[in-house]
């Protein structure tokens, strides 16, 4: 089981809800992923068209835990404000803290992320901090009490996969809270790799939403996360330089 703060989950795949081609595909993809945690953004309601289809309003809220994000925030104040708005919905107390430091790379601002996380932990939120893949920053975040650290594999939506395996491994080895690899996952292989490294979960969105077949990709990601997790628990063999025959050398016919 994946435990984040007081909450327990069977699934280790967290799914974002942006960029899907349509709501019907999205519903089927969410179902195929078997994800229990879904991320959302907080935005202004379009007053002129309030009845535009909205994914959240179609969702069986008893089946899912909502993880609103503070996406779009470039400052601590903006992130805290968005987090409070999300919580005031009465639907959730988890928050994905996201304080962006640069528009082109969308890489997190480490200082803003740390400060916003500190404030929100103090206010009683269950904080999942989206962070750079920096082991020291991950430690600092844990010191201020975050409930999960979510290092990016590579820039958001880039699909580049894991760029710094070594740092992820350091973060995982030292972590006292769940480590969820978030952002940059491009393929099931990337997701499986993250889990094989010992991550507690994977959060992804674009890799599913923009796949040719989002529903099939959602299922593939679910299986990849499960396979990676089992592979991690099973313990992979060490890599060797030369071959080692799998069939016996004795008893060969002449």
């Amino acid at each position: 089981m994946l435990q984040i703060g007081p909450y327990k989950f069977r699934s280790r795949l967290l799914l974002g809800t942006g960029k899907f081609p349509d709501l019907e595909t999205q519903s089927r993809a969410v179902e195929a992923s078997e994800a229990e945690i879904l991320t959302f953004a907080i935005r202004r309601l379009n007053i002129d068209n309030p009845d535009a289809p909205n994914f959240l309003e179609q969702l069986d809220l008893k089946k899912y835990t909502l993880l609103p994000n503070t996406a779009g925030a470039y400052t601590v104040d903006e992130a805290v404000r968005i987090a409070r708005l999300a919580k005031a919905s009465g639907l959730c107390d988890m928050i994905k803290v996201e304080v962006i430091g640069d528009q082109r790379t969308l890489l997190p601002d480490p200082f803003g992320t740390l400060e916003a996380s500190r404030i929100l932990v103090e206010e009683g939120f269950i904080v999942l901090a989206y962070t750079n893949d920096d082991p020291i920053l991950a430690k600092r975040l844990q010191e201020v009490g975050v409930h999960a650290v979510m290092p990016g594999a590579s820039p958001i939506g880039s699909g580049q996969g894991i760029l710094n395996e070594n740092n992820l491994r350091f973060i995982i080895e030292e972590a006292t809270v769940p480590v969820i690899v978030d952002a940059g996952i491009g393929s099931p292989a990337d997701a499986a790799k993250a889990m094989e490294l010992g991550a507690d979960g994977v959060l992804l969105n674009t890799a599913v939403a923009l796949a040719d077949d989002p529903v099939l990709m959602a299922e593939a990601m679910k299986l990849a996360v499960e396979a990676g997790r089992k592979g991690y628990l099973a313990g992979r063999i060490p890599k060797k330089r030369y071959a080692s025959a799998s069939s016996p050398a004795e008893g060969m016919i002449e």
Binding site: F40, I42, R44, L85, N205
Partner: peptide
């Protein structure tokens, strides 16, 4: 939400109405 009835709207107010949208 419990204060909607008693919270006044006055000239010059800045009101934001937000909701959950798809996001990652």
């Amino acid at each position: 939400r419990s204060a909607y009835e008693r919270t006044p709207i006055m000239d010059g107010d800045k009101i934001e109405i937000v909701h959950f949208v798809g996001g990652g």
